[in-house]
Amino acid sequence: MISCTEFIPAYSDLFRFLEKRDGKESVIRFWHYLSDYFLGNLQETVKKEGIQGCWTYWSRTLSEEAADFKMELDTQKGIFKGVLRRCPSKGRLLKLKHFKAYPDYCGHCDVLYRRVLEPLGYDFYLDMSECDRATCRFYILRKGDRKPGPKPDVGTSRKKKPGVRTKPRA
């Protein structure tokens, strides 16, 4: 048996195995399969409870995964926001000195959750810009509640050093 506490490296290596066999496309196909056949509990919970279902689902899974996280739910605005200050899965992979994680390990979250939530009427935004530090933020919003315009600020960008410009002046 592989302990559930050692699942993450096994999962990461399954992505690597599939990619080596059949390319990145095969990894994406597997993520679709997993989303369809394994995330039924998220789908059912959100169908039944609406945006509150996101709270129900992630409060259990992130607690069982001993994550360092913050969640925020606003049922009136139809917004759920999760901040993983230290993703337990990526954090574990980063700690392993003898084991190389699949480079796009975090990509599975974007594919799996989006595929469940979008057909249920929610937008899913995931910021993976700090994945290399096991930090990410996701934002789920009831479709139609968002006004047209730029993507919501999910509080993702690293703080800029004072005086450092990201764009050259015209």
């Binding site: 699942f7 409060s59 607690s63 069982e64 001993a66």
Partner: peptide, 20 residues
Amino acid sequence: AHKTMSCKASDHEYLHKDFH
């Protein structure tokens, strides 16, 4: 209407059996 939750890694034991 609005609620928040914040947890540290040390608040829970790492045992997510759904991974099986």
